[in-house]
């Protein structure tokens, strides 16, 4: 089976920072806003190079989202930066009315998503944001898996006209997708060919899915691995094509099973190709304090959990 090499652990938020820095150099319409989390969002370099195009809003996320909507009137492409929790639930109505319904070209860039934010605990670990954002008409929802992909996605969304939710995280994780890749919104990445089970994963769970595929391979199970970085619009064809071969599927995400990638996949399959499916996701719960690895273990969001889900779903064929 095809394997991927970790080029060295790195954080997806730094991929965002690198992408934003490049946009600062190449696209004069890109502006950035932050609600008092510059360091956490890795926006320092952009700010140093483009101080006139950066807006420090202070701890006022509602104001930030609506100011971003206003900046588009005049041709700017605003990138807002704060934690995923404060980028979505806290400001849902501002995004709904002033950005989504008004079809404003705002890029909502959300770091520290999911359990891997770690020790800060459940007040900051949002596991509902994909659901919140994918329900908004016209909103594109992306959850990147590593540093390289996050950098490429950040650059790509500036070229996409319309609101985008870009979700990434805090911890240093495996960096395994190609340097300087071209990111195509809505196009699933076929990572590993397999015949017994399809694993579709998003965000930090993509590397775990690759690790799971290796472990399954040693057990004589052939797993197909697909990276769904764009949850909306969903690459339905890639999913349907794969399960028509493997006849079963596991979805994996750092998110509640309600409202996440798994439900989007289930909707597509129930309409086009009903298929046994298992969900690697949190089970309608809040998170808690702990190290990222401890939390992913406790809440069943790692390679081991994916292996178990694959073995279970294969028996349901």
């Amino acid at each position: 089976m095809k394997t991927y090499e970790n080029q060295g652990n790195n954080d997806t938020r730094s991929g965002f920072g690198a992408g934003l820095t490049e946009l600062g150099r190449t696209n004069p319409n890109v502006v950035a806003l932050c609600a008092d989390l510059i360091g956490s969002l890795k926006m320092d370099q952009f700010i140093e190079e483009n101080p006139e195009r950066f807006f420090q809003i202070g701890i006022a996320e509602a104001n930030m989202m609506s100011i971003a909507a206003g900046l588009t009137i005049g041709g700017k492409i605003p990138f807002t930066g704060t934690f995923a929790n404060f980028s979505t639930g806290r400001v849902y109505d501002q995004i709904r009315q002033s950005i989504a319904y008004s079809d404003k070209n705002v890029k909502i860039c959300a770091s520290h998503a999911g359990l891997t934010l770690g020790e800060d605990g459940a007040t900051h670990q949002i596991l509902e944001d994909i659901g919140l954002m994918k329900m908004l008409p016209g909103m594109t929802v992306i959850n990147t898996c590593d540093y390289n992909q996050t950098k490429a996605a950040t650059i790509a969304i500036a070229e996409h006209k319309g609101p985008v939710y870009l979700r990434f995280g805090r911890p240093k994780v495996a960096n395994f997708t190609p340097v300087d890749q071209k990111f195509e919104i809505g196009k699933a990445l076929h990572l590993v060919d397999g015949t017994d089970v399809t694993i579709v994963a998003t965000g930090h769970l993509v590397w775990e899915a690759l690790e799971a595929a290796k472990a399954l391979n040693e057990k004589g199970i052939s797993a197909e691995v697909i990276d769904i970085h764009t949850i909306k619009p969903l690459d339905a064809k890639a999913i349907i094509d794969s399960v028509s071969k493997t006849k079963c599927i596991v979805t994996a995400e750092e998110h509640n099973h309600l409202g996440g990638l798994g439900e989007s996949v289930a909707r597509v399959l129930s309409q086009h190709n009903p298929t046994p499916q298992e969900f690697v996701a949190t089970n309608d719960t809040f998170g808690e304090s702990g190290t990222p690895a401890q939390l992913m273990e406790k809440y069943g969001l790692n390679a081991d959990a994916i292996v178990k889900a694959c073995e279970k779903v294969i028996k349901r064929k």
Binding site: F55, M65, A68, A69, G70, S98
Partner: peptide
């Protein structure tokens, strides 16, 4: 929300 939007447009 309108004052924030107006401020964004003012800064643009």
């Amino acid at each position: 929300q309108g004052l924030s939007v107006a401020l964004g447009a003012a800064q643009a």
